[in-house]
Design a protein around this nucleic acid. Structure first.
Lengths: 225, 225
DNA sequence: ATTCTGTTTCAGATTCTTTTCAGTATGATA
DNA sequence: TATCATACTGAAAAGAATCTGAAACAGAAT
């Protein structure tokens, strides 16, 4: 796991760095806001820990700038001020969590774990959507006490649907991802697999349904709505 | 947005309910852990707010049970105890955030926003006009709590009308954009679709009307003017 | 060789979309 | 007002897209 720490109190920053190293987290540390923004924009971190009061550029500005650039990396803000208004401003500017100094390192670690647990498509062992869990290691689709095995192509399609929950995936997109962009698979291949998956969802009794948007594609939906 | 509040202090629970109502959040409130778990498992919430000390079943147990059932809904724990060990336990049991009572309601609201923002990290694109929203990904037309699906051509026409709010779009223009400039579609094709769309607007109860400018074309207008 | 599993192909059924048409309504103009 | 062109709309027909069961096929495992 990769972290970025942006903190101008050098001793605190380095102490945090040590703690992260113990957790086997790979950590970059920078001591001012300008560098912080630069690092955050040009690397891929799992979490960014950001002091609010910084020379160069403050923490709020950095989060806002990151979100404006569509960088969704979880951000934890750190501050000495225990002002509720500040907290709210921080969270509404796009931060995911907020901690007041001084704090116990273990709490920071717990909050990091909480944030990255949610993230996950990279390291994660499973992919979730409503009552469904897709085990990425065994290709099993699980719902409540039932589970069923997915073939490779079923699995790939389900994974894409779950990884892009809110968006509609076109047949062309699915073909290029699952069969390969140079393949000559036809739309009906996708349709057949969607049918297989629907049968398995029905078997599991899941609330999840695969809905068709004609001439556009497929996406997951909550059938109970 | 749908929330579940699990809190045994009835006055606090109801006060929170009021606050959520002001935000137009739809809220279920239950006053003990057993009900909390039941509600959480059998409904689809965007966030669950969970007191730790509860009759029946405590907050930690509920989160753990939910996560074991692969329900990933974000959970915010509330507690009177400001004990770091407790916080860590809560977060590691699967909670996403942790707040100590007493707290300022605005901070809770900000944390709810932070959690739900992450969820829908896909910025769904949409087109708006007055009380209408057209989802560009699903081709759904939404007004208040109602929504209705548009066929592809209905969608294309609606999109053009909404994208060119002030101007009058001629049938020829619509034909060239929707059917293609080389098509042999007739004016009546457009008329038929305008009729379909008007029916759907009526169904939605929208303030928006499609007005006809004879021999010129169509445009959107506010019917209540 | 046989079985098993996963994949592809095909064709009929189904569902939704689009077109067509006829009768009606509306507005402009003389 | 009478007439004509234009626009509206319900219903039916035609057309497309999608679904799905069954069968054919391929490759791996037994």
């Amino acid at each position: 796991m990769n972290l970025l720490i942006v903190e101008d109190e050098i001793r605190l920053a380095d102490a945090l760095g040590e703690i992260m190293k113990e957790q086997k987290y790979i950590t970059d540390i920078v001591y001012n806001g300008t560098d912080g923004l630069y690092y955050a924009k040009n690397n891929c971190y799992d979490v960014i820990i950001l002091d609010v009061m910084l020379p160069g550029m403050n923490g709020f500005d950095i989060v806002r700038e990151l979100r404006a650039s569509h960088i969704a990396t979880p951000v934890i803000l750190l501050t000495a001020k225990d002002d509720v208004r500040d907290k709210i401003a921080g969270l509404d500017n796009g931060a995911d969590d907020y901690m007041t100094k001084p704090f116990v390192p273990e709490e920071l670690l717990a909050r990091i774990r909480a944030l990255t647990r949610r993230q996950g498509d990279v390291i994660l062992e499973e992919q979730n959507f409503l009552d469904l869990t897709l085990s990425l290691s065994t290709c099993d689709l699980i719902c409540g006490s039932k589970s069923i095995h997915l073939s490779y192509k079923e699995f790939e399609i389900m994974k894409l649907l779950m990884a892009n929950q809110k968006s509609v995936l076109s047949k062309d997109f699915l073909i290029s991802k699952v069969w390969g962009s140079d393949s000559n698979a036809e739309d009906n291949n996708v349709e057949a697999y969607i049918s297989f998956l629907r049968k398995k969802l029905a078997f599991l009794g899941s609330h999840v349904m695969i809905s068709t948007i004609r001439k556009v594609g497929y996406r997951l939906e909550d059938a109970s709505l």
